[in-house]
Amino acid sequence: MDSVKLVEMGPRDGLQNEPALVPAAIKIELVERLADCGFAYIEAASFVSPRRIPQMADSSGVLTGIRRREGVVYSALTPNLQGLQAALAAGADEVAVFTAASERFCQRNINCSVAESLERFAPVLQLAHERGVRVRGYVSTVLGCPYEGNIAPAAVARVAGALYRLGCHEISLGDTIGTGTPRAAVAMLSAVRQEVPLVRLAAHFHDTYGQALANLYALLEQGLRIIDSSVAGLGGCPYAHGATGNVASEDVVYLLHGLGLETGVDLDRLVATGRWVSLQLGRENGSKTGRAWNG
């Protein structure tokens, strides 16, 4: 059976924008519940400056505190060497670096140009590879930027190709503000796959305008088989007015199973986890499937 690799982003991208600090015990339980659902790839932590993202200040404790399930990759976001070293010390199985297709977004988000961000990643990838740890690359704003508007597919392809040539084993393409539509998503992917093999590309779509599932379906039709998602639709972008978070894992799994695609994820358990974490955070469940599911 044809299968799709799912990368669960809830514990990192999902929680990092929560206004109230989430206790480490809740984060640890969330990661463990997601592993029990069948996710084989979970981004569990972020080793960025705690001054910028205080929600992730306890990432070392989270990574060292989880009960690890055999066969699950527990990854962490690491923007620089200091972050990488902390992630490795905490036992991260895989790490990720991030930049953007938009110059202005890159300047506002990580205070440097796209070219400078790529230069900064070189020593990170070198050390990670020396330690036998794979590095994932994220490209933000691939279908739109809050400062520059629409982004040319060629610009996305240039950045994605540069990350791949640096040594990133997988490139995740992020519609950070959720403005993309299927036609634009297909045009973007068509350009990027000229620089990076399709089997190394992932879609990371936010659902601000309700287009994420339609965009994912369009890329599945093109052969893409790696998707990032977040339980209960957790997350959001501080640079996008009205952003509603990442596409919900429950909705993605429901779509994929309906298409006859294998995910390895137990949807009943996932729905229960989404309801549980929404209750812990005191927020509405962002998954339509999670709200409607009766098992």
Score class of each variant (00 low, 15 high):
Met1Ala: 15
Val7Asp: 02
Val7Arg: 00
Gly10Thr: 03
Pro11Leu: 06
Leu15Arg: 12
Val22Cys: 00
Ile28Ala: 10
Ile28Pro: 06
Glu29Phe: 09
Leu30Asn: 07
Glu32His: 03
Arg33Gln: 12
Leu34Thr: 05
Ala35His: 00
Asp36His: 07
Phe39Gly: 02
Phe39His: 00
Ala40Ile: 11
Ala40His: 13
Ile42Gly: 03
Ala44Leu: 08
Ala45Pro: 01
Arg52Ala: 14
Gln55Ser: 03
Met56Cys: 10
Val62Asp: 04
Val62Ala: 08
Thr64Glu: 15
Thr64Met: 14
Gly65Asn: 03
Arg69Asp: 14
Glu70Pro: 02
Glu70Ile: 01
Gly71His: 03
Ser75Gly: 10
Leu77Trp: 05
Thr78Leu: 12
Gln85Val: 10
Ala87Cys: 09
Cys106Val: 04
Arg108Ala: 15
Arg108Asp: 09
Ile110Glu: 07
Cys112Leu: 11
Ser113Val: 03
Ser113Asp: 06
Glu119Asp: 11
Arg120Trp: 05
Ala122Glu: 03
His129Asp: 14
Val133Ala: 06
Val133His: 12
Val139His: 06
Val139Lys: 05
Thr141Gln: 11
Cys145Glu: 09
Tyr147Lys: 09
Asn150Leu: 15
Pro153Asp: 13
Val156Phe: 04
Ala160Leu: 07
Gly161Met: 09
Gly174Ser: 14
Asp175Asn: 11
Gly178Ser: 13
Ala187Pro: 04
Leu189Asn: 04
Ser190Lys: 15
Ala191His: 12
Ala191Asn: 12
Gln194Leu: 15
Gln194Asp: 15
Val196Trp: 14
Ala202Asp: 09
Ala203Met: 13
His204Glu: 10
His206Cys: 14
Thr208Glu: 02
Asn215Gly: 00
Leu216Cys: 08
Tyr217Phe: 10
Leu224Val: 11
Ile226Phe: 01
Ala232His: 08
Leu234Pro: 07
Gly236Trp: 02
Gly242Gln: 07
Ala243Ile: 11
Gly245Lys: 07
Asn246Arg: 00
Ala248Cys: 05
Tyr254Trp: 08
Leu255Asn: 10
His257Ala: 07
His257Val: 00
Thr263Arg: 01
Asp266Ile: 00
Leu267Pro: 00
Gly274Arg: 01
Arg283Ile: 13
Glu284Ser: 12
Gly286Thr: 11
Lys288Ile: 13
Gly290Thr: 03
Arg291Ala: 13
Ala292Leu: 10
